[in-house]
Amino acid sequence: MKYLLLIHSNPENWGHPTFLRTAAALAMSSEERAELSREFETLLTEIVESGELVTAEALPDPAQTRTVRVRDGVPAVTDGPFVEAKEQFAGYFVVDCESLERATEIAARFPDTRFGGAVEVRALMERSGQEM
């Protein structure tokens, strides 16, 4: 089963990994920051080697976002994200794993979840199905 892990984060200045740029992480010692990076690297290595990671992408500063709406047949383009929130969509991972529980376990190990951000776990819909 494939799951989309949506990473929401609130870094001081946009950059990746976002968790290191949150106010709380910036206040930490360099050893603590290095330890955080190592934890994250461990997670990445684990899901690459297990064959669970399908794909992942990081996103640029939300300020670079364009939101497009069409009103009365006219496209209205605004700068900035569709949802106004403190935490912004920072990137995504697609993992293919045994269960929702496993996907949740992976999500919980993203350091962003501890620094005011969150990881949303969404299943990807399948194009195949069982007849009823």
């Binding site: 819909m125 194009r127 195949s128 199905g129 009823m132």
Partner: peptide, 11 residues
């Protein structure tokens, strides 16, 4: 509840 597109359509 289903995560299958054709099942969802059917239901």
């Amino acid at each position: 509840l289903t995560t299958s597109l054709p099942e969802q359509q059917y239901l």
